[in-house]
């Protein structure tokens, strides 16, 4: 049911785009107005979310420690998994952001005969997540051929290596195949593994379907239905130079593709996809575990409230404590004791 909800939502988006592209004026709305709105929501929402996160105080050092902390000189510290310096944190973050190291450390629990619980390494999620994200990056960068004129130089080499095998015309991009394969894996994984399916929500399936839809319409557009690329570039280049025009016939499939991309941009800042910014903002990852070396003062402490040690607390309340029969570290002075009686 949770899968169906997400699927229906994406199909509804496709239908909306299909209908809107046929209605007079609809293409203009989808092609010349909506992208600006979606892009503004994307940027605004992204900044707002990051600022919102930055407003939350993180008074304590809460990094996840996955290895030996800095200790005595003869105990070897795990500098990446329990960093105590800035360099260690940067190293940990770089590996996390570029190579998804925490997924690489993923384990899988399995109950075998006995019954015996066995933990094994499980690299599939890491592998396909990495493939998915990097091919997505390649695809986005390749799209710069539609948004820059003169075309940025790296696009040519990307195009060359992506279509290295020269299969068919227009040449097949390997990144397209890997991308669709990887996202299918990420989706099937959620369906097939019982424990993952149990914790999956429509908000997990929706972005998968949406991105799958974007990939599928893109592939249809390039290899099967085919569209007038020059007319499309006139529109896309027009969008980034603030003079969008729709010349000639642009296929309906393009508007479906564009509408789904706009939906993704609008959805992005309000969803789990914000891990793009979130990975940098995670206090469990971006802090050094140095609580034993540096004194961290809670930034929102009230400066008017002075420290109150137990000794001074007892000094203040000793009389009442003795009266109540509570144990005290320092007995009442003899003279006072008498007067109290």
């Amino acid at each position: 049911m949770r899968v169906l909800k997400a699927l229906i939502a994406v199909l509804a988006l496709v239908v909306i785009a299909l209908v809107a592209a046929q209605v007079p004026g609809g293409q203009s709305l989808l092609g010349r107005v909506l992208p600006y709105v979606a892009f503004a929501i994307f940027l605004g929402g992204f900044v707002q979310r990051v600022v919102y996160w930055a407003k939350s105080p993180v008074p304590f050092r809460i990094p996840t420690t996955c290895g030996q902390a800095n200790s005595l000189p003869w105990i070897q510290q795990n500098k990446l998994d329990c960093p105590s310096t800035k360099a260690g944190v940067v190293g940990r973050m770089v590996l996390e952001v570029l190579l998804f190291r925490s997924l690489f450390r993923n384990t899988q629990a399995e109950v075998q005969q006995g019954p015996r619980l066995i933990y094994g390494s499980s690299k599939w999620l890491w592998l396909f997540a990495l493939l998915f994200h990097y091919t997505f990056l390649v695809i986005v960068l390749r799209h710069m051929r539609l948004f820059t004129d003169p075309i940025v130089p790296f696009v040519h080499s990307l195009e060359f290596f992506d279509g290295l095998f020269q299969v068919g015309a227009p040449v097949l991009y390997q990144s397209d195949l890997i991308f669709m394969g990887a996202i299918t894996f990420l989706f099937v994984r959620r369906l097939v593994l019982n424990n993952i399916r149990y914790i999956s929500l429509p908000a997990d399936y929706f972005p998968l379907f949406l991105i799958f839809g974007i990939g599928l319409t893109g592939i249809l557009m390039r290899y099967f239905l085919r569209v007038d690329v020059v007319a499309i570039k006139q529109l896309t280049l027009g969008l980034v130079t603030f003079s969008p025009v729709i010349n000639g016939q642009i296929g309906t499939i393009f508007f479906v593709h564009l509408f789904l991309v706009c939906a993704l941009m609008v959805y992005f800042p309000f969803s789990k996809l914000m891990h793009l910014g979130g990975v940098f903002m995670s206090p469990t990852r971006n802090m050094a575990n140095n609580s034993r070396m540096v004194r961290h003062v809670n930034p929102w402490n009230d400066p008017n409230i002075k420290p109150h040690s137990y000794a001074s607390y007892e000094d203040e309340f000793r009389e009442f404590m003795v009266d109540a029969g509570l144990p005290v570290e320092k007995e009442m002075p003899a003279a006072q004791e008498k007067s109290a009686e």
Binding site: L43, F147, V230, V240
Partner: peptide, 16 residues
């Protein structure tokens, strides 16, 4: 994110 917006600014664009 806004790279295409400022990259294209200095060039005259002509459809082929």
């Amino acid at each position: 994110m806004t790279f295409p917006l400022w990259y294209n600014a200095g060039f005259a664009h002509q459809a082929p």
